[in-house]
C-alpha cells in the first residue's frame, strides 16, 4: 500500500508512457472517454468512461492477417504484434469485464491469440469507486466497487490523492518504475471505503438463484412483450464491457488486403443469418431473449459467473430503456 498525491498523476503517466502508449479519461463534448494521453487534462469526476476497457484490449476491429498478391503470388502475413499499453482510469467493473472475457477467450480449449497478445501487452490501472452512479448495480452481479479482478494496479481515491496497490506482478513492475512518486500509506481507509461502498440500485435487485429460477423460462410470453420496445441496434452490446461476439471479414484494395475481426451484436437482425438464407433468430423476441439469457443463465452455467458486471452503460444509454436492470426488475416479478 502506497500513497500518491493527486498532483503526481501526470508524472506517473508520463513515466509509464516512455515504454508504452498511455490511455486516460478525457472530457470531450461533455462526455468522458478513455483516450490516448498526450498530456491533456485527466478527467476525474465521472462514473464510467463512455467506452469501456474492452475496446482497448479487444478492439472494435483488428487485423487477423494481411495479404498481398493474387492467385499466383499470394503472400500472407500475421498482423503486427500490439504495442505495450497502459490504461489508467477504468473502473473495477470494467476490469472485471476483461477478466470475464479472458475466461471465455483464454481459458477454454481454444485460446484466442489476438486477445491474448493484447491482454498481455496491457497494464490496467483501475480507479476504484468512492461514489455510486445512478445506474451502477455491480454488487447485484457479484462485482464490488473495489474489485481487483482484471486489474494490475488498484488506485483508491483518497482525500488528496490515491492509495495505490499492485495486484499483479505486472502491476508491481509498473509501480517500481514510479517508486519516486509513492510514499508509505498512513492507513487503508480509502480502500476500505471503496470496499464498503453501498450501491443503492443493486440493493433493489435480486439475483439469488437466478439461473435455477430461469430454467423453463425460455418460452415464457415475457420475452415477446419486453422485446417489442427493442430497436435491434447494437448500443447495448457495443458499450458492454463483457460482450465479446465478433465476425470475420476481408477488405482489400487492389492487390493488398486484410482479414479483420470486428465486434458484432446478437441484437442485429442479420447476426445469425446463414449463407443459405436461414436465420435462426429472425424475431426480436429471440434476439432479446438470447442477450439476457446468455448473461444470466448460459454464462453462469459455462463460466461460473454472470455475463454482466453491472456497469450501468446499457441502463443509461439504451434508447428504448431495454436494459439489464429493467429485465432483472421484471424477472423479480415474473419469475417463480
Amino acid at each position: 500500500m502506497k500513497l500518491m498525491r493527486a498532483g503526481a498523476l501526470p508524472r506517473l503517466l508520463e513515466t509509464l508512457g516512455r515504454q508504452a502508449q498511455v490511455y486516460a479519461p478525457a472530457t470531450e463534448d461533455g462526455l468522458v472517454l478513455l483516450r490516448p494521453w498526450t498530456g491533456q487534462a485527466i478527467a476525474t469526476s465521472y462514473v464510467n468512461p463512455v467506452n469501456s476497457l474492452k475496446g482497448l484490449v479487444y478492439p472494435q476491429t483488428e487485423a487477423v492477417l494481411e495479404f498481398t498478391g493474387g492467385d499466383e503470388n499470394l503472400s500472407l502475413r500475421e498482423a503486427p504484434a500490439p504495442a505495450p499499453q497502459v490504461v489508467f482510469g477504468g473502473r473495477p467493473c470494467d476490469a472485471a469485464g476483461l477478466a470475464l472475457i479472458a475466461q471465455v477467450l483464454l481459458e477454454g480449449t481454444f485460446v484466442d491469440e489476438l486477445f491474448r497478445r493484447r491482454r498481455e501487452a496491457t497494464t490496467v490501472l483501475t480507479v476504484a469507486c468512492r461514489e455510486p452512479g445512478p445506474y451502477c448495480f455491480c454488487r447485484a452481479m457479484g462485482v464490488s466497487p473495489a474489485d481487483e479482478r482484471g486489474s494490475d494496479v488498484m488506485f483508491y481515491p483518497a482525500d488528496d490523492g490515491y492509495l495505490v496497490e499492485a495486484v499483479t506482478a505486472r502491476g508491481e513492475e509498473a509501480l517500481q518504475a514510479v517508486a519516486g512518486l509513492l510514499a508509505p500509506a498512513p492507513d487503508t481507509g480509502a480502500r476500505d471505503a471503496c470496499r464498503e461502498l453501498r450501491i443503492p440500485l443493486a440493493e433493489k435487485l435480486t439475483t439469488d438463484r437466478l439461473a435455477a429460477r430461469l430454467e423453463g423460462f425460455f418460452e415464457h410470453p415475457y420475452w415477446e412483450q419486453v422485446a417489442r420496445r427493442c430497436r435491434s441496434c447494437g448500443t447495448c452490446a457495443y458499450l458492454c464491457p463483457t460482450c465479446y461476439c465478433t465476425a470475420i471479414f476481408d477488405t482489400s484494395r487492389g492487390t493488398r488486403g486484410r482479414r479483420l475481426r470486428g465486434w458484432d451484436s446478437c441484437q442485429f437482425k442479420d447476426f445469425l443469418l446463414m449463407a443459405g438464407g436461414h436465420n435462426p433468430r429472425p424475431a426480436k423476441k429471440q434476439r432479446v431473449r438470447n442477450r439476457f439469457l446468455h448473461k444470466l443463465s448460459y454464462s453462469p452455467a459455462n463460466h461460473g459467473a454472470y455475463g454482466c458486471v453491472g456497469c450501468g452503460r446499457c441502463v443509461e444509454k439504451c434508447p428504448a430503456d431495454l436494459h439489464m436492470v429493467a429485465v432483472l426488475t421484471d424477472l423479480g416479478e415474473v419469475l417463480p
Binding site: 463534448d29 472517454l33 430497436r231 441496434c233 447494437g234 457495443y238 451484436s265
Partner: peptide, 16 residues
C-alpha cells in the same frame, strides 16, 4: 471529425 470519430456504428440512429 471529432464527433464522428466517436461513432460506435451501433446503428442506433438508423434504427430509431
Amino acid at each position: 471529425a471529432r464527433h464522428l470519430e466517436r461513432c460506435l456504428r451501433c446503428h442506433a440512429c438508423r434504427n430509431a
